[in-house]
């Protein structure tokens, strides 16, 4: 039963799911790193991205690439706007104030989408070229699955280069290490935060488009569960660490897919319980997460 083909198939599934979790987890970890904000509205950026893709494909008949890029850009902008309107006024207030606000933003988006668009899940039909399967011997893989894996990898490598090489990337890492000292070095913190929110929301928007294309449905609450899983991924990887979020995302994808593939069928309903058990184990062994370094002088 566990033939090489079956294993390869599961591997592809795990990479797929892992890529999506990683894309979402990166944004959570970036924003947390700088503002110590657990952004509960992050998953909703996926939802908004998915609705935009739906509108783009079904109403405007955009080509597939545009139905991905456009939502990404628009959601990046939405992320910046939310920071400006909802979070910036609370800068300097106790951290919990921002956290509660992000919950409010999240429910605003979910309820707003329900009112305007109804809670009815809508089907998203991707161009048939993407659902075609390519055969590799016994194994057949959908073009879209390969696309998701490759695209996520490209986005993550690009982000890595950006954070490593550009001055604003260096500033971003400095801010997440010591925000006050960064200001004393002449770093315009607001600019760094704007860039972080744009990237964070843009990546989540892209993940939302990919997620809804893969599973074929869009609804107002679709971002909630993946957002939660991405949070788990970010914590497993060490929240605040971008490589950690990537690692955590892939680990979670693998854990989920292989749990369902190998556990007895009557247990596969406990997939999420397994995920959280995994989180607990990692945190027991490494409280700061796999690549986290704990708190260093935040004073």
């Amino acid at each position: 039963m566990f033939t090489p083909t079956y294993l390869a198939q599961q591997l592809i599934n795990a990479l797929n799911l892992g890529s999506l979790y990683a894309l979402v987890a990166i944004g959570l970890t970036m924003v947390y790193g700088i503002l110590r904000l657990i952004n509960f509205a992050h998953g909703d950026m996926m939802t908004l991205g998915a609705y935009l893709a739906l509108a783009g494909i079904s109403a405007l008949v955009l080509p597939a690439w545009a139905a991905l890029v456009l939502p990404m850009l628009v959601i990046a902008l939405v992320g910046v706007l939310i920071e400006r309107l909802a979070y910036r006024p609370l800068r300097g207030a106790p951290e919990v104030a921002m956290l509660i606000t992000s919950l409010a933003v999240s429910s605003l988006i979910q309820n707003g989408a329900t009112m305007l668009l109804t809670a009815q899940p809508r089907p998203l039909r991707v161009p048939s070229a993407l659902t075609q399967r390519i055969a590799f011997g016994d194994l057949s893989i959908a073009v879209m699955d390969l696309g998701i894996i490759a695209l996520a990898a490209v986005l993550m490598v690009a982000l890595g280069v950006f954070v490593k090489r550009t001055t604003i990337g260096i500033a971003m890492r400095a801010c997440s290490e010591n925000l006050r000292a960064a200001q004393l070095m002449g770093v315009d913190v607001n600019r760094v935060i704007v860039v972080a929110f744009a990237i964070s929301a843009g990546l989540a928007g892209a993940a939302g488009v990919l997620w809804s294309s893969k599973f074929g449905l869009v609804d107002p609450f679709m971002g909630f569960v993946p957002g939660l899983k991405a949070f788990v991924a970010a914590v497993i990887g060490g929240i605040g660490s971008i490589p950690g979020a990537m690692l955590g995302g892939y680990l979670l994808g693998f854990a989920e897919v292989f749990f369902v593939a190998f556990a007895p069928p009557e247990l596969s309903g406990y997939r999420d319980a397994f995920v959280f058990a995994l989180l607990l184990i990692v945190l027991l062994v490494r409280p700061a997460g796999l690549l986290g370094r704990g708190e260093v002088n935040r004073a």
């Binding site: 001055t167 260096i170 890492r173 400095a174 000292a181 960064a182 070095m185």
Partner: peptide
Amino acid sequence: RQIFGRLSVLENLRLAAMH
């Protein structure tokens, strides 16, 4: 001191001249 321990020495210096 409050140097950025995870950045390289050169990155610390570049950062301060970023503006």
